[in-house]
Design a protein around this nucleic acid. Structure first.
Lengths: 214, 214
DNA sequence: TTTGCATGCATTGCATACAATGGATACAGT
DNA sequence: ACTGTATCCATTGTATGCAATGCATGCAAA
């Protein structure tokens, strides 16, 4: 199905910054770029709007960036949900419903993320960091929370990508990851939730406003 | 725009139970029912899928109902987010950023909801209850949280509508509403969050599985 | 110079024709 | 009877034409 292809490809292009916030996309342009007719592209643009990644104006769609207030709100939502997933994952661990392999994989992911971050490979670090957090949500086994978090992560990512800079206190970030992992491993559910919330709020960045381009 | 009309009308029909979970909808049927061509209807169906209200099979869309596990997950997400919005609303009240009129309106809404519930007018009660909770989220002023909650509310509503029954402990529910309102009015943010979470989890119901119809 | 207005044009909204797909059904062979 | 297979048909997927919309541009009038 070409509309799914279009949706996936356009989403990639937005999340990796190729289409920056403020950039305008018309159906015909996107159709030409993806070499398909307007119909599937049109549906893909609608889907991106539902994802909150673009805003439809009367005149094509525009890649969104959250204003600083909305971005703060998004972090609050993310913190609440990641506290939930961390707590749930820890509970499942305590009840013996997590495979040991899951935790070692998470351990590895945390290590690789720390290394990549400390070396300043920013784009990779963003991707790995997201995978670490997603993995925890997956371990919680809450499908609704995972889907919701995916939306929020997307919106935060597109809004902060332009202002990527070396993580200043990367040792702090890595330590929080370690603490979180330890709490989950020990099945300390409440701790895990609180650490996750604290961590998300500590990594808040502010958005740069998008230039209303084209 | 007809696609918006189609989206709105189909959403209504699903949320009020006219199209029950498990019912299959084809593009042509829906187009005929709404008296428009397939194109806008098709977009509306896609939007409903993005809302999580229908699931697209290769053969038309099917009105979803969450299975018991997913429904439980949805309540967990709802509890986490309503804790956030209640806490935020209370904080704003404490900081004097809420208008007194907002709180009296909420007070009235709580009273009407209690009355309707105690009289067993179920459909109205569902609507009023949702408005009460939505109003609090609006007072929190967190747009992202409100949008996210709307999705979760929709999914819970469509999954529980078939099993509506008189609220057994309606006095308990009303008392929790009153407690929540009091905590917000007093600006007791942490209390408000905890009461909201407790309340949501106390009102959990279990879903009846949809018949795979037609 | 500025404001109002008309006109053109880019772009989306909608309808419809046609292609592709995949599930159901009927039939043949064992 | 049972299984495999060919065929049909319902339904969606895609392309494209035409209508509607609204923004931008230029021109005229004050």
């Amino acid at each position: 199905m070409q509309n799914e292809v279009a949706h996936r490809r356009l989403r990639e292009l937005i999340l990796d910054g190729t289409y920056a916030p403020g950039v305008r996309l018309t159906e015909v342009d996107a159709a030409a770029a993806l070499e398909m007719s307007r119909t599937p592209v049109r549906e893909a643009l609608r889907a991106l709007a539902a994802d909150g990644l673009v805003r439809t104006t009367g005149r094509g769609v525009v890649v969104v960036a959250l204003d600083p207030g909305d971005l703060e709100d998004a972090y609050q939502v993310r913190a609440a949900l990641e506290a939930l997933t961390a707590e749930t994952a820890a509970t499942r661990q305590r009840d013996g419903r997590l495979a040991p392999a899951d935790l070692t994989a998470l351990r590895t992911l945390a290590d690789v993320t720390a290394e990549t971050t400390s070396e300043g490979r920013l784009v990779e670090a963003v991707e790995l960091n997201r995978r670490f957090h997603r993995r925890i949500a997956e371990l919680a086994g809450n499908r609704i929370a995972l889907e919701t978090l995916n939306r929020v992560w997307d919106q935060i990512q597109v809004s902060t990508l332009r202002s990527l800079k070396p993580v200043v206190r990367h040792a702090h970030v890595s330590a929080q990851h370690d603490d979180l992992l330890a709490a989950i491993t020990d099945g300390r559910a409440q701790d895990a939730g609180q650490i996750a919330r604290r961590h998300v709020l500590d990594t808040r960045t502010t958005a740069r406003q998008p230039p209303e381009q084209q």
